[in-house]
């Protein structure tokens, strides 16, 4: 299993029946493929839909049914579309249970940086700042390191997406919870040791006695 699939399968276990969920573009979108059986969630997209699904095979794409990245989607029975004001009201207003986003850096305060690299990549924040500031639960799904360099740091060096702490960090090496006391290593991936995680992490990690091995959705 490649790293991204492992991360997506672990994140999928965080979704609870009845949740309203927003998945970011890229790796987070893969989470929808691995929903555990019996778990029924609704997916929201910032451009204004609740009840989206991947475009079903054999259904022709419509220009008037797309996700936030402009890719064609399908609408489940009961889906509804709305304008951008309602879409972000829903995000900021505490109606969105979970958002899953990619990350460039996360720090010991649980703060996420994921929208710009000054002088290199300045695409704009899109809806990321609203999602991280407003969703009830924020999950960062990202690779543990970038070209060998840790991405979980004492302090983010890149511009922050929000000062609000994220709730959970899922990487191909570990699951890390944010707590008032700091970052807690709660799970390691199969075949990965606690020491390997610590070596790949710049931030201080609290290591409880009972670090478990990461379970993943089928």
């Amino acid at each position: 299993m490649d790293d991204k699939t492992l991360i997506a399968r672990r994140v999928a276990l965080e979704l609870k029946d009845g949740d309203l969920v927003n998945l970011g573009i890229g790796l987070p979108t893969m989470v929808a493929q691995y929903l555990p059986p019996g778990i029924d969630v609704s997916f929201q997209s910032e451009n204004g839909i609740v009840g989206m699904q991947a475009l079903p095979a054999g259904v022709s794409p419509s220009a008037d049914l797309t996700d936030a990245g402009g890719a064609p989607i399908g609408a489940l029975p009961g889906a509804f579309a709305f304008d951008s004001a309602m879409s972000f009201g829903l995000i900021r207003g505490g109606h969105l249970d979970i958002t899953v986003l990619g990350g460039l850096q996360v720090d010991e305060l649980g703060q996420l940086a994921n929208w710009m690299v000054p002088g290199k990549m300045v695409p704009g924040m899109g809806g990321a700042m609203d999602l991280v500031s407003g969703a009830k639960r924020v999950i960062v799904a990202m690779t543990h390191t970038a070209k060998g360099a840790p991405k979980i740091l004492k302090r983010c060096t890149l511009p922050l997406t929000s000062i609000r702490s994220v709730d959970l960090i899922v990487t191909e090496m570990a699951v890390i919870r944010t707590t008032p006391e700091g970052l807690v290593l709660s799970e390691v991936a199969p075949g990965v040791s606690v020491d390997q995680v610590l070596a790949a992490t710049q931030a201080h990690l609290i290591v409880p006695d009972d670090v478990s091995v990461m379970a993943v959705a089928a």
Partner: peptide, 29 residues
């Protein structure tokens, strides 16, 4: 930020001077 941009325009059309939001607080915004 996208949600703030949308609200700024909504305010412009609704006779409001602006809105208060947590989005962007403590960031370069």
């Amino acid at each position: 930020p996208q949600g703030s941009l949308v609200e700024r325009v909504r305010c412009g059309g609704a006779g409001l001077g602006g809105v208060l939001t947590k989005t962007g607080l403590g960031t370069v915004v």
